[in-house]
């Protein structure tokens, strides 16, 4: 019975079905391609492209970040050494300045000292000179009074000077 039905199916086979299937199938191919396959595969391609681009972008940005980190690290190192240098130069400068100030103060003090010494010397000689003149006058006056006779200062000056020299030398030896 099975055999019979198979043969019967082929017996009543209709060529129209094959034609109908061909037409419908080709129509289906066109419709599906236009409405579903095209957009979906395009979207899938787009996604693949986007993922590729994103991966590439991530790689480059990561490399950039690493580069920046390295740069920052080296900058940090540089700034440390720079700071040390700045402190060092400041120290040296301070030392120099201290030396300069010290030197200036020393020379100032020296000059003040010498000036004071010179002043003192000058005052002493001036006092000595005026005292000498005074003594000469006084001794002439006394002698006038004693002798009652006018003595010229100029006449007697050599004598008095010699006398005073003897006095001062005696004073010095004493």
């Amino acid at each position: 019975m099975m055999n019979g039905s198979v043969i019967a199916a082929i017996d009543v086979a209709s060529l129209g079905d094959s034609l109908f299937l061909l037409v419908v199938f080709i129509l289906l191919l066109l419709l599906v391609k236009h409405f579903a396959w095209g957009p979906v595969t395009k979207m899938m391609d787009d996604r693949a492209k986007k993922i590729n681009a994103d991966l590439d972008g991530a790689e480059t940005s990561r490399a950039q970040a690493e580069k920046m980190a390295a740069q920052r690290q080296s900058e940090l190192k540089n700034s440390k050494s720079e700071a040390i240098q700045i402190v060092n130069t400041a120290k040296v400068n301070g030392e120099k300045r201290r030396q300069v100030i010290l030197d200036a103060a020393q020379s100032d003090a020296e000059s003040v000292k010498t000036k004071a010494r010179e002043d003192a010397q000058q005052a002493r000689t001036e006092a000595l000179n005026s005292a000498r003149n005074d003594v000469a006058q006084i001794s002439v006056d006394i002698a006038e009074k004693l002798i009652g006779k006018e003595l010229s200062v100029s006449d007697q000056k050599d004598l008095i000077d010699a006398y005073i020299k003897g006095l001062t030398s005696a004073d010095e030896t004493r």
């Binding site: 129209g16 079905d17 419908v24 419709l31």
Partner: peptide, 24 residues
């Protein structure tokens, strides 16, 4: 002159419609 089996043609049409609606 061509013989069409109505059952086959109808079910081909239904299948094609289902496939199209499914993908669409």
């Amino acid at each position: 002159g061509l013989r069409f089996n109505v059952a086959n043609c109808l079910s081909i049409l239904v299948t094609a419609l289902l496939v199209f609606l499914f993908t669409f």
